[in-house]
């Protein structure tokens, strides 16, 4: 009993939430591309660029707000590359994503080495992190206090964004257009919606979210940049979207489950279980879930066969 309560306690939940946030943020952006029928492999690279830009601008200016802005901006820029080649110039969308990831991994390393003459990682007291928020009254409540208060500002932003994305996707004309293009590009075209433009917009939105998710990793979770620090979270975000059946709330639930799994694996690792098996848990869980979800074939039609932009072409 003591053993169990050592593992399963409030600290685990809090750690799980914090690990879930970058997955949630990237996942919320990826929802748009998924709804627009684009398989967005490139989130990994967009996040890495966001993480880099956040640290770089924070280091240079000392302003975390400018840093967050830069992260979103650079995420957008990465999305432009992805959209340009994946949507406009019709690379295979998976190839465009893989290419972006390769580019992000190599180019951030290049920048690290040619600007800072260091390799591996960049940490410096001059890097300003995202501030944490202490909620005034809730902070004092015994159980809810540590659960809800004292997180990074971006944690709260992420939760608010779940509602915003839900509203945007299901209650605004642009959201409807995105979903329409994903559902049936030809039908959307017949009522005067240009599928390629809408898809490009979806890619841009996912870029902004991914940039923010990257900045969370480098400025809220760590306050440093590490080579390839995203390490698969972009893909896990993609899996979280599938797991959440392509809805904002479902993605939130999925991200929290993945976050808890990883927190649990870290906890078990400190107790002497072979670390490699623990580190595997999030990946194994994700793959198993993905296969089971596909098996149940309960996913909406557009999630099943990645025909990508084919439908959206002339």
């Amino acid at each position: 009993m003591g053993f169990l309560s050592n593992i399963l306690n409030l600290g685990l939940v809090v750690a799980g939430i914090r690990i879930a946030i970058p997955i949630l943020l990237a996942g919320l952006g990826g929802l748009f591309t998924l709804q627009a029928n684009i398989l967005n492999i490139g989130m990994e690279g967009m996040m890495l660029f966001g993480a880099w830009a956040g640290v770089f601008v924070s280091y240079m200016t000392g302003s975390v707000w400018l840093a967050l802005l830069a992260a979103v901006g650079v995420g957008l820029l990465a999305a432009v590359i992805f959209g340009l080649f994946g949507v406009r110039y019709r690379c295979n969308i998976i190839v465009a994503g893989m290419g972006l990831n390769l580019f992000a991994g190599a180019f951030t390393m290049y920048l690290l080495r040619s600007i800072f003459r260091t390799r591996g990682s960049l940490s410096d007291p001059r890097i300003v992190g995202v501030p944490t928020l202490t909620l005034p009254v809730i902070d004092k409540i015994p159980f809810l206090g540590p659960l809800l208060s004292g997180h990074s500002l971006l944690v709260y932003v992420a939760f608010v964004l779940v509602a915003v994305v839900h509203y945007f996707l299901y209650r605004t004309p642009t959201g409807l257009r995105i979903r329409a293009v994903g559902e049936h590009a030809e039908a959307a075209r017949s009522v005067g919606v240009d599928p390629a433009r809408v898809q490009f917009l979806a890619v841009l939105i996912s870029g902004a979210f991914s940039g923010l998710a990257g900045a969370y990793l480098s400025l809220a979770q760590l306050r440093m940049f590490v080579e390839n620090m995203v390490s698969g979270r972009g893909f896990i975000a993609l899996a979280a979207i599938y797991f959440g059946r392509g809805t904002p709330v479902g993605t939130l639930v999925a991200a929290l489950i993945f976050g808890l799994a990883e927190a649990l694996s870290m906890r078990l690792q400190t107790l002497g279980f072979p670390s490699q098996f623990m580190l595997m848990i999030p990946y194994v869980v994700t793959v198993a879930v993905l296969i089971v979800v596909s098996r149940l074939a309960a996913v909406p039609r557009r999630l099943k066969l990645p025909s990508f932009t084919e439908e959206a072409r002339e």
């Binding site: 698969g232 490699q276 580190l279 074939a297």
Partner: peptide, 21 residues
């Protein structure tokens, strides 16, 4: 089942590398 192979194989890479590790 039409489970997206790109995502599953990418994630399984991590599993294989960790397992050999």
């Amino acid at each position: 089942y039409k489970a997206d192979e790109t995502v599953t194989t990418i994630l399984l890479n991590y599993v294989a590398i960790l397992f050999t590790s």
